[in-house]
Design a protein around this nucleic acid. Structure first.
Lengths: 261, 261
DNA sequence: ACAATAGTGTCTCTGAGACACTATTAA
DNA sequence: TTAATAGTGTCTCAGAGACACTATTGT
């Protein structure tokens, strides 16, 4: 039996629970940060691009569900140190029909695998991240989805409810979720930059600056290497020298000291 | 119809969804930070002390539910600027019987009202916060509940599942939730100290230091007033001078500039 | 006047940022 | 040797913290 609440009213029906996962990767060729988007082939928002989602099963936690989604969609089995909770989105206006909550997580892939569409999606592609004057944008060369423009949550959902979204926008409130995600990552850059996991277990300072740059809204050349090294030495452990066949002095490689001690 | 997942399996049953609210206040007499705990009179954990909880209704968001809980339990109607999301707790081991998720919020009351037990609780009391070597503790003079000792989430839940909790412990995983809450507040002290809302709309620097002290695990006298003022001037706006009938120079009063511009 | 309280000024040390310089590689 | 890349050293400035000093109240 469900316990009674302090309120006299009983609960008629529960909302559904979605796990939404923002899956990050890094393209070594283009040197750009990417996220995974899928084209929905279900109602609601059939034919819209969206963040990948799944439902939670009764015998798993939400972060296990997020990792299961990665395994099913990408075919990559990761430990939960590659996943972190973003936030939970519960606004009534976030779904058009059946009330659905979103438990949002982020997963950082150690490389950028090829994709194939899965169940519930007619297409799945990587979208590379860039910054704009008013926020961030994700593009696959054909389509571009900016993050939400609104400054506050209530402003955003008020607008969302007023006008029905065109297919030039992501489904649901996913543009808002992406905005929250980018800002969270930016805020953690100086004390827990888990986003660097997209570079794999080791990385050079240049790679790290390439990842930081779009979040800081600047070209990576403007991040001074000397200063960057000094202000991050408490986070990075030197683990040797990279070998490359390109001209120029080989770069040192580092690991995240708080994750791999 | 519920949309189909990318996985072929369908979902048999959904977990329940609880709203858990950590309600903070400040006692002007004892100069201590307090939280509200209730003694449960329902299964499970009947007779145990716990954080106040409620269920979400279909026509409200989770933060609205948290504020409704405050209204019902305390009789105080607050705006959502007094509430913030903490995290969502989904571990399978967190509830003994029926699987239940907790969407955890924090509410900062502008004063410390008298309490009366409500539905689902045989008692409700304020517990004042103190720090210990290994964390924090909340006491009402009779009972004391420390925050969880474990350093990681998986460690905590492994221990929780192994031994059944005595009534000297809080119900469910609430000692873990409290640990996460205290650490979150501590981390935000230098850029978004919403915890100061427990002092009401205005406060003196001494009051602010009294609130900061337990989170920083030091007696408030060790927080240098001059340095504290300098390092928080970007957050506080001077709004005048307090009047007091006590000896000593009257203190200036401030407001949070990012909330009340 | 004095105790009690609160606000101010100053010194030092550390860290961020600007920027010039040195080091190591492939061709 | 040169272009390309990466690492190092140094100067300045701003902020954190220790601590001594001044200011304003009630009794």
């Amino acid at each position: 039996m469900r316990g009674t609440d302090m309120d006299s009213e009983s609960i008629l029906e529960q909302p559904y629970i979605n796990i939404t996962n923002i899956i990050w990767s890094f393209d070594q060729i283009t040197s750009k940060v990417n996220i995974l988007l899928v084209k929905r082939s279900n109602k609601p928002y059939n034919g819209y691009w969206a963040l990948p989602e799944t439902f939670m099963r009764t015998n798993e936690s939400a972060d296990e569900a997020a990792l299961r989604l990665v395994r099913a969609k990408i075919g990559m089995a990761l430990s939960n140190s590659h996943t972190e909770q973003l936030a939970t989105f519960t606004n009534r206006l976030r779904t058009p029909e059946q009330r659905t909550l979103s438990l949002a997580y982020m997963t950082f892939l150690p490389d950028k695998p090829m994709l194939k569409p899965g169940y519930g999606a007619s297409d799945a592609r990587w979208f590379s991240m860039d910054y704009t004057e008013s926020g961030y944008a994700f593009s696959d060369g054909e389509l571009t989805f900016p993050t939400a423009q609104s400054q506050t949550e209530s402003q955003y959902y008020a607008k969302l409810a007023k006008s029905s979204l065109s297919k030039a926008h992501l489904a649901y409130d996913h543009e808002w979720i992406l905005k929250v995600a980018c800002e969270r990552i930016k805020n953690k850059l100086d004390y827990q930059p888990n986003i660097l996991l997209v570079l794999g277990p080791q990385f050079t300072l240049k790679d790290a600056r390439l990842v930081y740059a779009p979040f800081l809204k600047m070209p990576f050349e403007l991040i001074d290497n000397s200063n960057f090294k000094k202000s991050h030495r408490h986070l990075f452990t030197d683990v040797g020298t990279s070998m490359s066949n390109r001209p120029g002095r080989p770069a040192r490689v580092y690991k995240l000291s708080y994750l791999f001690p």
